[in-house]
Amino acid sequence: MPTRSPDAIRETLSPLIAPGLRARALIRNSVILSALTLLAGCASQGQTDPNGYRADGQASYYGARHHGNKTASGERFDQHALTAAHRSLPFGSRVRVTNLRNDKTVVVRINDRGPYAKKRIIDLSQQAAKQLDMLRDGVVPVRLEQLSQ
């Protein structure tokens, strides 16, 4: 189907729209188009990368005593941000973390290296751990899924 310019569409519809309603119709259509564009952009925000990293293992968290220290990426650690440490994923990678005990999920950004404890695959910020409801347990089984960029 050939693509038509907005002017061509307007010319086609002009006789159908009463003069007083023309401006309102154009504004309404612009708002609808803008909303659809925004929603399309948001749709990719949480999609897993089909070729991305996936793993199950143990997660822990680090908080107050590391707050403000430099991370391996060079930024300062903020225990209130949704960030995490991973041994090999590139800095800036976004990962969905699912607590396998309660199915709660959080999306974090990798900005540090670790964890250095055996059997653990990710160290989360305190805020991310709070969203997963794991503060009391400290270490929980999780599933990691890298999200598309």
Rank of each mutant, 00 (worst) to 15 (best):
T3N: 10
R4G: 01
A8G: 11
I9M: 08
I9A: 04
I9H: 03
R10G: 09
R10L: 09
T12G: 02
P15L: 08
A18H: 13
P19N: 06
L21K: 15
R24A: 06
R24K: 07
A25C: 15
A25R: 04
L26P: 05
R28E: 11
V31F: 03
V31T: 06
A35W: 05
A35F: 01
L36W: 02
T37C: 02
L38Q: 03
G41N: 08
C42L: 06
A43P: 00
Q45W: 15
G46L: 07
Q47A: 13
T48R: 01
T48Y: 03
D49F: 06
N51E: 05
A59S: 12
Y61G: 04
R65G: 10
H66P: 06
H67W: 01
N69S: 13
N69F: 06
K70V: 11
T71I: 09
T71F: 09
A72C: 13
E75K: 15
R76M: 09
H80R: 13
H80T: 09
A81M: 07
A84H: 02
A85R: 04
R87H: 03
S88A: 14
F91I: 07
G92F: 01
S93T: 15
S93D: 14
V97H: 04
L100Y: 04
D103W: 11
K104I: 06
T105C: 04
V107T: 12
V108A: 01
R109P: 12
R109D: 11
I110H: 00
P115H: 00
P115Y: 02
P115N: 09
K118S: 11
K119C: 06
R120F: 09
I122E: 00
D123T: 03
L124S: 07
L124R: 00
Q126F: 11
Q126E: 04
Q126G: 07
Q126N: 01
A128L: 08
K130E: 05
K130T: 05
Q131R: 14
L132R: 09
L135D: 14
L135A: 08
R136G: 05
R136V: 05
R136Q: 14
V139Q: 03
R143T: 09
L144M: 14
E145R: 03
